[in-house]
Computed example of a mutant assay.
Amino acid sequence: MRRLPPPRKQTLFRRDFPDFGDLANGRVAGRRSRDEISLYINGGNQGLQFASVGGLVYEAARSQQIGRELPTEWFLQSIRD
Score class of each variant (00 low, 15 high):
Ala24Pro: 00
Asn45Lys: 06
Asn42Ala: 12
Gly54Lys: 01
Leu48Ala: 10
Gln64Asn: 03
Arg14Phe: 13
Asp81Cys: 09
Leu48Asp: 02
Ser33Cys: 08
Pro7Lys: 12
Leu39Met: 08
Gln46Phe: 04
Ala24Cys: 07
Gly54Ala: 04
Phe50Ser: 04
Ile41Leu: 14
Arg14Lys: 15
Asn25Lys: 15
Val53Ile: 14
Asp22Gly: 10
Met1His: 05
Pro5Ala: 14
Gln64Arg: 07
Ala24Ser: 12
Gln49Pro: 00
Val28Thr: 15
Pro5Trp: 05
Gln77Val: 14
Gly47Asp: 00
Pro71Arg: 11
Glu69Tyr: 10
Trp74Gln: 15
Ser52Asp: 01
Leu4Tyr: 11
Ala51Leu: 07
Ser52Ala: 12
Tyr58Ser: 07
Gln10Trp: 11
Ile41Arg: 11
Phe50Pro: 00
Gln10Cys: 12
Arg80Pro: 00
Leu39Glu: 02
Leu76Gly: 04
Arg3Val: 14
Lys9Arg: 04
Val53Met: 06
Ala29Tyr: 02
Pro71Gly: 10
Gln49Thr: 09
Arg80Cys: 02
Gln46Leu: 06
Ile66Asn: 00
Arg14Thr: 15
Phe13Pro: 02
Gly26Leu: 06
Thr72Pro: 01
Leu23Asn: 01
Pro6Asn: 10
Arg68Ser: 13
Gln65Trp: 01
Pro5Arg: 15
Ala29His: 09
Gly47Leu: 01
Ser38Trp: 08
Phe13Arg: 12
Arg8Glu: 12
Glu36Phe: 05
Asp35Thr: 13
Ser63Asp: 05
Asn42Gln: 04
Phe13Asp: 11
Arg14Met: 13
Leu76His: 10
Arg31His: 00
Phe17Thr: 10
Pro18Met: 13
Val57Ala: 12
Met1Ala: 11
Tyr40Lys: 07
Gln46Val: 07
Gln65Tyr: 02
Ser38Gly: 03
Ala61Ser: 07
Pro5His: 07
Pro7Glu: 11
Gly55Trp: 02
Pro5Cys: 09
Gln64Asp: 01
Met1Ile: 11
Glu59Arg: 13
Leu48Thr: 08
Ser63Trp: 03
Leu4Trp: 06
Arg80Ile: 06
Ala24Glu: 06
Gln49Phe: 08
Ala24Asn: 05
Gln64His: 05
Ser78Cys: 07
Pro18Ile: 11
Ala24Trp: 07
Gly21Ile: 12
Pro6Tyr: 08
Gly26Phe: 08
Ala51His: 01
Ser52His: 03
Ile41Ser: 09
Gly47Val: 01
Phe75Asp: 04
Ala29Gly: 03
Gly43Phe: 10
Leu56Arg: 04
Gly47Lys: 00
Ile41Tyr: 11
